[in-house]
Design a protein around this nucleic acid. Structure first.
Lengths: 190, 190
DNA sequence: GAAAATAGTTGAACTTGTTCAATATCTTAA
DNA sequence: TTAAGATATTGAACAAGTTCAACTATTTTC
């Protein structure tokens, strides 16, 4: 039951046997994370990769000026990772915080490496997911270049209405790359 | 000789035997592309994936208003791909144009699929490269949010001086997401 | 349930970047 | 080698978004 949504998610990305699916799932352990708790804070090395079962997370960086910069939000069926820190074992620049009481499946770095080695299809799984993510990031950057803040806000809230409803305007503004005051003015207009 | 830089590039990403390297290379065919010619124009399905041996390319999209939006530039040792069109066999939104006479190694879609199947390490290669690219795109988006156009220009020209020197200001501006008039004003200041 | 903290609103002054138009410079093809 | 076309520069008027500050809601915590 716990692994149902992970299995479904994997099958939506690659063709895979039930045996392999079960083996992959056996590496993941369920965890609960309370609202406002952090799975990762910047400066630390990221040891886990996570898959969200329920709840919602915010992945953000804090720059020198103290501004919070939200990379993305992760709700059900999204992954929690800091690829850079996880791959290279370098201190992370990111923070991953639960926005509500949440449940995740976690795999630690050593197990992930074992999984890659013991089951080559896992390479394919992450290759496919990474490439899809890449396309999404490219599109987001283009939107940032050619759309106004208002257009970007409407696109986000229409694309992810259920996530939008869980967020404060401050969090949305930090995702869109605008000040929260300006977001307030945008919302008043529309 | 032709495959030297591709081999070196692959080895910088994964550990691999010389036999596997040679097999991978056997799928790629060298091509020359003249300045201003297109490897891909939007609306078409992308059939090839390419590795740049020499020269320089620009990968860009044109939006409804007719604005050119440069995703990235690809010089020696960079890949030319439209992941979206190549993976899903859907018409591309991108244009890939040679900025000077260039040489590339091309692999067509069917061969790429065969390569993935016959040599699982190729999945790993593209998994690793995609994840590295993902990190780079995330950083670029953050820079777009928290740096001014001038800071972004200086970062770009300092990071890629040899590419910068091959480009017109119009092309650089479309990469930074600003008007070329404003780039001209920025350059005058510094 | 009151106090404290956080989030949202609004306005005024300001900065960054755009648009348009005119002019100047550089490339390229015939 | 010259005309045509693309590229770069500059200025003025404008639009988009920021910053600061004061105020109002809304949550959170004890």
């Amino acid at each position: 039951m716990t692994f149902h949504s992970l299995k479904k998610h994997i099958k939506s990305n690659i063709e895979i046997s039930n045996e392999d699916l079960a083996l992959i799932c056996s590496y993941f352990k369920p965890h609960s994370i309370k609202k406002k708790d952090f799975l990762l804070t910047q400066g630390n090395i990221y040891k886990y990769e996570g898959f969200v079962l329920e709840g919602c997370f915010r992945i953000f960086a804090i720059d020198e000026k103290g501004n919070e910069n939200t990379l993305y939000f992760a709700a059900k069926d999204w992954w929690l990772m800091d690829i850079d820190s996880f791959m290279n074992q370098t201190p992370s620049n990111l923070n991953i915080q639960a926005l509500e009481n949440s449940k995740v499946l976690l795999i630690d770095r050593a197990d992930k490496m074992r999984l890659y080695e013991s089951l080559p299809i896992v390479e394919k799984l992450f290759r496919v997911m990474s490439q899809k993510a890449l396309v999404a990031w490219q599109r987001r950057l283009i939107r940032n270049h050619c759309e106004t803040a208002k257009e970007r806000y409407l696109h986000f809230s229409n694309t992810y209405p259920s996530i939008t409803s869980k967020l404060t305007d401050k969090q949305i503004a930090s995702y869109l790359g605008i000040s929260h005051e300006f977001l307030s003015k945008i919302k008043k207009q529309s």
